[in-house]
Write a protein that binds this DNA or RNA. Structure first.
Length: 479
RNA sequence: GGGGCCGUGGUCUAGCUUGGUAGGAUGCCGGCCUUGGGAGCCGGAGGUCCCGGGUUCAAAUCCCGGCGGCCCCA
C-alpha cells in the first residue's frame, strides 16, 4: 500500500503540508524527530543551504552599513518586563528560566524572544551624542517563542534558529523613516535572489506591531493558497526609546529621544523557497544558493569501470576550483543516485559513461526542466555558467507564473469572498478602518496590509463604501 | 480556542474490535552478480510495541494521565 520508494513523496498538489514535511526530511534539511515540540534538528545539508541564504542577507547588510554583533540569549525579567506593557499575553509566550542548578532563581531569566529589550538596555550607555547616530547593528541568533498553536517545521516553531534581527538608532523620525524604506529595499533584493515572489504591505493600524508607529511586511503565498509573512520592518519612532530611556544630546546640547527601527527574517525564507520551487521529485535550489551545484554520477559499464572512474575523478578535480561539486562514486545504481540528488535540488548533474569517456564530452541533466544536454569538454565551465543563468531565469519565470496564478484582484466584496479561500486577494480600499473591518468580517480572514497610495488618482472606488480608493489592500488565509 | 485521528526495528506499516509466541516491506551490514532512471540472489544484524500508572494469572491490545505527531474548524 504505502510501500514507497526512498525518494517518493506525497504529491504537492494532493497534500501540500505532507509534501513539505516529507521533502525537508528526505532532502536532509531537517530531522523533525526531535523530542521537544516545535524544535527540529538542522542537518548538514540544510544548515549549509541556510548559511548560503544568510550570506546573501549579510552581504546586503554590510553593503548598507550594518554591522554584526552578539548579545546574550538570556534576559532578566526586570529588563524584558518593560516590553510587556505593549504586548498582550507576551509573558505567556516566553521560555522562563526559574531555577539555577538546584536553587530556585531570585529573578527569573528569559530566553530572548527577540532582542530589543536587552539591546536598548545596553545601548543607552553606548549612545550619548548625536555623533553616535545613526547606529545600525544586527545579529543572527536563535530566539525562543512558546507557540501555543500547532507548530510546523520552519513555519511555526518554538525555536527560530536563524533569526536575523536588525536594530537601528537614529536622531530623527525622518531618518528612521528612511531607514525603514532601506530595510524594505534590502528585503526585496534578498527575496529576488532567492527567487521568491512577494508583496510588500503596510499593516493596517489595528494590526500594527505593538509599540510601533507603523510596519511593513513582506508576504508571499504558499502552494496551498495561504499567505506567509516572510519578514517585517518596523518603525518604533521614539516609543521604545522612552521606555528604555534611550536619549542623546543634539547639536544644541538638548536631550532628545532616539528613534529606532527593527527588521527581522528567519528560516521561513527557506521554507518559502522550498515550497514555491519544489516539485514531486524534491527541491529545486537556485544555482547561486545551492550547497552542491554539480553532482557527477559515473555509469560504469562492464569493462570500462576504470576509464569511467578516472574520467569522473579528473572532471571532479577540474570543476572543483570553480563550482561546488560532488562526485558520487557510491556503489549504487545510477538511477537511484539520480533520484537522490534530484530530491536535494542539485541544479546540474553530469553523467559520465562509456560513450562520454570515449568521445570526450559530458551529458548534463538540469534539475529545473529535467532536460539533458551534451557539452564539449573544451567549453565545459563556460557552458555550465550559462546553464546556471538559464536555470535561474527559468525558475524566476516559473515563480512569476506561480505567483500570478495565486493572486486575484477583486473589484467587489463578492469577489473577495469567492476567491479568498484559494488565493491571495487584493481590492481597492479607501483607507477607513470601518471599511477594512467590514471586508475582514465578510471574508472571515484578516487583512495582510495595503500598498499605500496604489490607487491614488486612478478613479478606482473602495469596494465597501464606494468612495475614492487610495490603497490596494490584501487579504488571505494565512499561516 | 473548538472538534477529530494517530504513536509498533532507521522508514512505511500488519496485529488492537474479541488480552496469551510481535509479522511483513523497505532500508542497513557481509558476499555474489551488476550499473545509461529506484535490479536480483544468498546470508546477517536491528524492538523499552512513545512514557508513567491502573485492571488482569497475563497488556502492543482494555482504562486513566502525560509527551509527541497529524487533520478539520474559528
Amino acid at each position: 500500500m504505502s510501500e514507497r520508494k526512498a525518494f517518493e513523496v506525497t504529491p504537492k498538489e494532493v497534500e501540500f503540508s505532507r509534501w513539505f514535511d516529507e521533502v525537508i526530511f528526505k532532502a536532509e534539511i531537517l530531522d523533525e524527530r526531535y523530542p521537544v515540540k516545535g524544535m527540529y534538528v538542522w542537518l548538514p545539508y540544510g544548515y549549509q543551504l541556510m548559511e548560503n541564504i544568510m550570506n546573501v542577507m549579510e552581504r546586503l547588510l554590510r553593503e548598507t552599513g550594518h554591522r554584526r554583533v552578539y548579545f546574550p540569549g538570556v534576559v532578566p525579567e526586570s529588563v524584558l518586563g518593560r516590553e510587556f506593557r505593549f504586548i498582550k499575553g507576551f509573558e505567556d509566550s516566553i521560555f522562563w528560566i526559574t531555577a539555577l542548578g538546584r536553587k530556585k532563581i531570585q529573578e527569573r531569566l528569559a530566553l530572548r524572544p527577540t532582542s530589543e529589550a536587552i539591546m536598548y538596555e545596553v545601548l543607552k550607555r553606548w549612545i550619548t551624542s548625536y555623533k553616535d547616530l545613526p547606529l545600525r547593528i544586527y545579529q543572527i541568533v536563535p530566539v525562543y517563542r512558546y507557540e501555543t498553536k500547532a507548530t510546523r517545521p520552519m513555519l511555526r516553531v518554538r525555536e527560530i534558529v536563524f533569526f536575523k534581527e536588525g536594530h537601528t538608532f537614529h536622531a530623527t523620525y525622518e531618518d528612521a523613516v528612511k531607514q525603514v524604506d532601506l530595510e524594505v529595499e534590502i528585503y526585496k533584493k534578498f527575496y529576488d535572489e532567492l527567487l521568491v515572489p512577494y508583496i510588500v504591505v503596510k499593516t493596517p493600524p489595528w494590526d500594527t506591531f505593538p509599540g510601533a508607529k507603523y510596519n511593513y511586511d513582506i508576504v508571499t503565498i504558499m502552494p496551498d493558497g495561504k499567505a506567509l509573512e516572510l519578514g517585517s520592518a518596523i518603525n518604533f519612532g521614539d516609543l521604545f526609546a522612552k521606555t528604555y530611556d534611550l536619549v542623546y544630546m543634539d547639536q544644541n546640547g538638548e536631550k532628545r529621544y532616539v528613534n529606532t527601527t527593527s527588521f527581522g527574517i528567519s528560516e521561513r525564507s527557506l521554507a518559502a523557497m522550498i515550497s514555491i520551487h519544489g516539485d514531486n521529485r524534491g527541491l529545486k535550489i537556485p544555482p547561486k544558493l545551492a550547497p552542491i551545484q554539480v553532482v557527477i554520477v559515473p555509469i560504469p559499464t562492464k569493462g570500462y569501470e576504470d576509464k569511467v572512474n578516472e574520467f569522473s575523478k579528473s572532471l571532479h578535480e577540474r570543476l572543483s576550483s570553480r563550482f561546488r561539486v560532488v562526485l558520487d562514486d557510491e556503489d549504487e545504481r545510477p538511477g537511484f543516485k539520480f533520484y537522490r540528488w534530484e530530491m536535494k535540488g542539485v541544479p546540474a548533474r553530469i553523467e559520465v559513461g562509456r560513450e562520454e569517456t570515449e568521445k570526450q564530452f559530458v551529458t548534463v541533466a538540469r534539475r529545473d526542466t529535467g532536460e539533458r544536454v551534451k557539452i564539449n569538454l573544451s567549453e565545459l565551465e563556460e557552458e555550465l555558467e550559462k546553464l546556471f543563468e538559464d536555470i535561474e531565469d527559468t525558475m524566476k519565470k516559473q515563480a512569476e507564473n506561480y505567483f500570478n496564478e495565486r493572486v486575484y484582484h477583486a473589484e467587489s466584496i463578492e469577489e473577495v469572498k469567492e476567491h479568498v479561500t484559494q488565493k491571495m486577494v487584493s481590492f481597492p480600499w479607501c483607507g477607513l478602518d470601518e471599511c477594512g473591518h467590514e471586508v475582514e468580517e465578510e471574508a472571515g480572514y484578516g487583512l495582510l496590509g495595503y500598498e499605500e497610495g496604489y490607487y491614488e488618482g486612478s478613479g478606482k472606488k473602495c469596494i465597501v463604501c464606494g468612495r475614492e480608493a487610495k490603497h490596494r489592500a490584501w487579504i488571505a488565509r494565512s499561516y
